[in-house]
């Protein structure tokens, strides 16, 4: 048999490593790749992609099937964090949803209390998200940053309109910023430049390129991530950062994950379809370069973890 010479890519860049946790808590390192996802024959993937399980600081308005998967744990962020840890979370992603003006419009004090509760309940690293309303994000994330002083948490979202406040909080308390941009490679790079110009080192940034779920713009996120990752591997220091995506939130917003009735029979059984919707959104984005997945359903999480195990086995 003739020997076939396998072409390999000689990437000169390396994705930066970002560390979360520490200060007496478990540590998680993401990034560090010198090749495209799971192509171990031509480069290193020193850190496996991690799964952050999303919990909220108030009872979620999620679809019933998803809420019941967590049972009574959702009634309190501490019990929910423990349940998430038991479900195998690498990181806890705490959404301060109650701060949304349309929700309970809670403020800094409640945010601080929720963060402390979760930190006390589990020893996993933490990510904290605001309610995606810039003014409120500023208020509650600054409080969260202060409450989590001493360990490294990731704070999001840090967007073009509020990055100064969030980055300042990261600088003051030693945290990581989650830089969110709307599915576009140049905007992502630009925000990273703005953030590093403020003095936050690039290894304290996670990129959130905005997630499209399966059937709802997945292909845009997928291709923007492939382009970001390839630019990073080619040596562009302002795109070569770990990528965080939110397949849980996005998949469970869609009818395919929520609607049992009034949908075509060809969609199949909701129980199976909903889980696949989240899991396949996640695995597809892993193939495009995701380093951190924020997920919701325990069964989907289990499937994705098993898949990552298989990809990482050499």
């Amino acid at each position: 048999m003739p020997v076939v010479e396998i072409p390999t890519e000689k990437w000169k860049g390396k994705i930066r490593e970002v560390t979360l946790g520490g200060g007496g808590r478990k540590t998680v390192v993401v990034g560090g790749e010198t090749t495209l996802p799971f192509l171990h024959f031509e480069g290193e993937m020193p850190n496996r992609p991690v799964i952050a399980i999303e919990i909220q600081d108030c009872e979620p308005d999620w679809t019933g099937r998803l809420v019941s998967a967590w049972g009574d744990a959702v009634k309190d962020p501490a019990s929910w964090a423990k349940a998430a840890a038991a479900a195998g979370a690498d990181v806890i992603a705490l959404s301060l949803e109650s701060a949304h003006p349309d929700n309970q419009n809670t403020g800094a004090k409640e945010a601080e209390a929720s963060v402390k509760k979760v930190l006390d309940a589990v020893d996993l690293p933490l990510m904290v998200f605001g309610p995606y309303v810039a003014e409120k994000d500023n208020e509650v994330l600054v409080a969260a940053a202060d409450a989590a002083r001493g360990t490294v948490v990731a704070l999001g979202s840090c967007e073009e309109k509020n990055f100064r406040t969030i980055v300042a909080a990261c600088l003051a308390s030693g945290h990581v910023a989650i830089a969110k941009t709307p599915i576009e490679i140049n905007l992502a790079k630009q925000l990273n430049i703005l953030i590093t110009d403020m003095g936050l080192p690039a290894d304290r940034i996670l990129m959130d390129p905005t997630t499209g779920a399966l059937g709802y713009g997945l292909e845009y996120t997928y291709s923007v991530m492939e382009r970001l990752r390839m630019a990073g591997l080619q040596g562009d220091g302002m795109t070569g950062l770990p990528i965080m995506v939110t397949p849980g939130e996005e998949a469970w917003r869609q009818k395919e994950a929520k609607a049992a009735d009034g949908v075509p029979e060809a969609w199949g059984k909701i129980e199976d379809r909903a889980i696949i919707w989240e899991a396949m959104t996640a695995t597809s984005l892993l193939l495009a370069g995701a380093d951190v997945l924020v997920m919701r359903h325990p069964k989907a999480i289990e499937l994705v973890r098993a898949t990552v195990d298989k990809w990482m086995a050499k």
């Binding site: 399966l214 059937g215 060809a266 909701i270 199976d272 696949i276 396949m280």
Partner: peptide
């Protein structure tokens, strides 16, 4: 259908 439909969508 519950696994074919996601695959066709992907």
């Amino acid at each position: 259908p519950s696994t074919i439909y996601p695959l066709l969508t992907l």
